[in-house]
């Protein structure tokens, strides 16, 4: 199991610049929880002190951000300057990385709602934005259906929001105000572009 432990320790090092700095400064204490040989401890200490370790840590962050940003670009933009700190906290709480975009995005969305960020937005508005972006990704990545199955087409989806979609997606700094009544939108990705229509309007057009 020694090589497996070495790889586990190295993975932890790459996932956390803070831990990497601890290993560089105090290897005995920082590597205490791993079943390593003396050579493996020495290897990790040398690697933690190597300037290239910063790039490993950076690449780890980039590769974890890509799935989140790909599915939730507007949410990331809304978080603005605090995005980095939010991601640090998320990575610390959820260290198990995955390249499954939708899984990582869903996990981040749930985490974000449980840890509301310090932005001038109510949690309900953030929930609406996350719901909308996850639904958009869902319909846009869904498989095409033969025409005879069009009623169950996974590229169609209904979402109910409590805020105006324009104010959720816009760049204005002020918080969106809740609508008097919730609105249901039809997301339709069957064509070349995604269309978003209020359900009543969609029904009227058919």
């Amino acid at each position: 199991m020694s090589l497996a432990e070495f790889q586990r320790a190295l993975g932890d090092l790459i996932a956390s610049p803070l831990h990497s700095a601890e290993v560089a400064a105090q290897p005995q204490r920082a590597l205490h929880d791993y079943a390593l040989t003396q050579r493996e401890r020495r290897r990790l200490w040398v690697m933690a002190r190597n300037s290239g370790m910063r790039m490993n840590c950076t690449l780890y962050r980039i590769n974890r951000i890509i799935p989140i940003h790909s599915v939730l670009p507007r949410t990331c933009r809304r978080l603005g300057e605090i995005l980095g700190g939010v991601l640090d906290a998320y990575f610390a709480d959820e260290p198990e990385s995955t390249l499954q975009y939708l899984l990582e995005a869903h996990r981040f969305a749930h985490w974000l709602l449980a840890h509301p960020p310090a932005i001038h937005w109510p949690v309900d508005a953030l929930r609406d934005l996350l719901t909308f972006e996850l639904a958009c990704h869902h319909v846009m990545s869904a498989p095409r259906q033969p025409p005879e199955q069009s009623e169950d087409d996974p590229r169609l989806c209904l979402v109910t929001l409590h805020h105006d979609i324009g104010s959720l997606l816009g760049d204005q700094a002020s918080a969106p105000t809740p609508l008097p009544d919730p609105v249901t939108l039809l997301l339709d990705a069957r064509g070349d572009t995604l269309s978003v229509m209020p359900v009543d309007a969609a029904l009227a057009s058919q």
Binding site: I14, R61, N63, S97
Partner: peptide
């Protein structure tokens, strides 16, 4: 879990 990059 994915290590984020190929481990040396």
């Amino acid at each position: 879990h994915h290590a984020g990059l190929a481990l040396p």
